[in-house]
Computed example of a mutant assay.
Amino acid sequence: MSLTNQTIVITGATSGIGYQLVKQLAPQNQIIALARCPQKLAELAQTFSNIQTIQVDLGDPDALETKTKELITRAQPIDILINNAAIQNTPAFIDTDFNYQTISREITVNFTSVCQLTYLLLPQILASKQGKIVNINSGLALAPKSQSAIYCACKSAMFSLTLSLRYQLAQSHLSVQQALLPLVDTAMTQGRGQHKLTAQEAAERIIMGIQTNQLDHFIGKVKLLSWLKRFSPSFAYRLMQNA
């Protein structure tokens, strides 16, 4: 599949992987960028042509529904929806700095908003001749780590959602894909881990997976993790526990 002259919705579009996706896709496609910060969205619109911006907090389900309805009224087919946005809180439940108030927001941004956008935009994606839903996932969907339990659970839920949607839409022309990433060097992972994939590299590999229609795209070290999970699940879990 050639990624040209496509209408592509990207969440979390103003930083990290989302920004790199916009940077690499905008020259030959129409981008609809969703993000929370109006200033960063304005900068994005000034930097790239062929881009529409929608300011929305994915942690607010009502606001997301309202903004999505505004997009629906434009009545244009959507070729690709890329569910990229994510947040991650690292404290464990037993840590003194764990914040109870963050639980609902983390689940909403990382998973509920994906369900909402997919459902609300599905008619427009089905209206495309080669529609795709692409969920940006993590190796933590395969094996969680001890910290960031809610983030890990959301990524596992996204894996399951992706497969279920694929089953539900099997009789349609729509493709449901996911890219499972290793640790990527973004603001969210600052100060954690080594030998991280750059956001630019992650975006390049995501785009390659879309072009080649890789349904479950295991990127970088996640390929090894997938193999370990298949042949030695207990070892894979031990390996990822303190990742």
Rank of each mutant, 00 (worst) to 15 (best):
G59H: 04
Q28W: 01
P38H: 11
D62W: 01
L25N: 00
R36D: 09
Q55G: 07
A75L: 14
K67Q: 15
A35W: 00
P38I: 07
A42Y: 12
P61W: 05
I32L: 10
T53P: 13
I78Y: 06
F48E: 13
D57G: 07
S49E: 15
E70S: 09
P77F: 06
Q76R: 02
T68E: 02
I51T: 13
L44Q: 10
R36I: 12
T73C: 11
Q55L: 00
L44V: 02
N29L: 06
K67L: 04
K69Y: 09
Q46S: 14
T73Y: 11
R74V: 11
R74I: 12
Q39F: 07
E70D: 15
P61N: 03
V56D: 07
I72Y: 02
L34C: 05
R74N: 14
Q28V: 11
D79K: 00
Q55I: 02
Q28C: 05
D79P: 00
L25Y: 01
Q28I: 06
K69R: 12
I78T: 05
I72D: 02
L25Q: 06
L25K: 04
P38D: 14
T66V: 03
L44H: 00
P27L: 08
K69P: 10
A75V: 01
I82Y: 01
L44F: 00
Q52T: 15
T66D: 09
A45L: 10
T53A: 09
Q55R: 05
I51Q: 12
P27Y: 07
I72C: 04
P61F: 00
L81M: 05
A35M: 04
I72W: 04
L64P: 13
D57Y: 06
P27G: 02
E43K: 08
T47S: 10
T73W: 12
I80M: 02
E43Y: 01
T47Q: 15
Q52S: 15
L25E: 00
I51K: 09
L64A: 03
A42N: 14
P61L: 01
E43I: 03
P38G: 06
T53N: 12
A42D: 15
L34T: 05
Q30P: 01
G59D: 05
D79W: 08
I80W: 02
P61D: 01
I54K: 11
E43S: 07
I32Q: 03
E43P: 00
I51V: 15
N29A: 05
E65T: 06
Q39S: 10
Q30T: 14
Q39R: 09
E65W: 04
Q76G: 03
A63M: 11
I72Q: 02
R36P: 08
Q30S: 10
T53C: 15
N50M: 09
R74M: 14
I32E: 04
L25H: 01
D79T: 09
P38M: 09
E65R: 13
I72T: 08
F48R: 08
D57T: 06
L71A: 06
L44N: 07
A63R: 12
D57N: 14
L81I: 11
L41D: 13
I78M: 05
L34K: 01
Q46G: 10
I51Y: 13
L44D: 10
Q39N: 11
I54D: 05
L71P: 12
A35H: 05
N50C: 11
Q39I: 07
D60M: 01
K69I: 10
C37D: 15
K67H: 12
A45G: 10
T73Q: 14
P27A: 06
Q39M: 01
